[in-house]
Design a protein around this nucleic acid. Structure first.
Length: 228
DNA sequence: GCCCAGGTGGGTA
DNA sequence: TACCCACATGGG
């Protein structure tokens, strides 16, 4: 069977799951904070940290920089890696305050490639975090090629196993519309699929892609082999 | 108790 | 360049 196209993947997932209404955040800066906090971390943990930040009026650059470092660490503790992430948030807050004192939205007119390079220069902002911020906070049409995307792409036969971030991003960008709404929905749908069916241990029963997925036979056989 | 989660940075060969 | 490893909490 021919591997499905990224557009087909988008369409099937949208039909199965509906719009995901991402990113779950109130302001562009809050998007950026969430993007840092969710690094290698479940979103449920991030939510706790964001609520704690909100309670301390620390969902703004000034609010974060006003907290003593030890207090910031304890506030984001539920999100894990709290010492490093607290440092990342301070770096991010200082950059926004200096680069966009009127708020991230004021960078709307800047070149996306230049902005991406600036973000990548900050400690704690790698490719996925930069692209998430540019896509969901600033509305730039970029593909977020996170671990779920690459794993699912490989299982569908769309990408070779072990494809890196940049190669996966380039592959998908050539095959999806350069439209922030579509790309934002695509990534959100892929994450939804990943959480429910396609983690490191796939659970293919009920997966909306089961009939089109070359990988299903293996885990499905395993599931059938479990004694009833 | 074990595995995993919406990565990134630094060190080593 | 290509691996390793540290970083840490909370939920299934």
């Amino acid at each position: 069977m021919k591997p499905m196209t990224p557009q087909e993947l988008h369409d099937i997932l949208l039909a199965a799951f509906g719009p995901q209404h991402w990113w779950p955040a109130g302001t562009p800066f809050e998007v950026a904070v969430g993007a840092v906090l969710t690094q290698n971390t479940a979103w449920s943990n991030v939510e706790q940290a964001i609520r704690a930040l909100a309670a301390k009026q620390a969902l703004t650059p000034a609010g974060i920089l006003a907290l003593p470092p030890s207090v910031l660490e304890q506030t984001v503790r539920p999100a894990g890696y709290f010492r490093v992430k607290a440092g990342y948030l301070r770096t991010l807050a200082a950059w926004v305050q200096q680069r966009a004192p009127d708020g991230l939205a004021s960078l709307a007119g800047s070149d996306a490639g230049d902005l991406r390079q600036e973000l990548l220069g900050l400690r704690g902002i790698g490719p996925e975090t930069a692209d998430s911020i540019l896509l969901y906070a600033l509305g730039r049409p970029l593909v977020v090629a996170d671990a779920y995307t690459r794993r699912i792409g490989a299982r569908l036969g769309m990408l070779p196993e072990g494809t890196g971030y940049a190669a996966a991003q380039a592959y998908l960008a050539r095959r999806l519309p350069s439209d922030a709404a579509v790309l934002g929905e695509f990534h959100a749908l892929v994450v939804r699929l990943g959480k429910e069916f396609c983690g490191k241990r796939p659970r293919c029963s009920g997966c909306p892609l089961a009939s089109r997925c070359p990988s299903v036979s293996v885990p499905a056989a395993r599931e059938r082999s479990v004694p009833a």
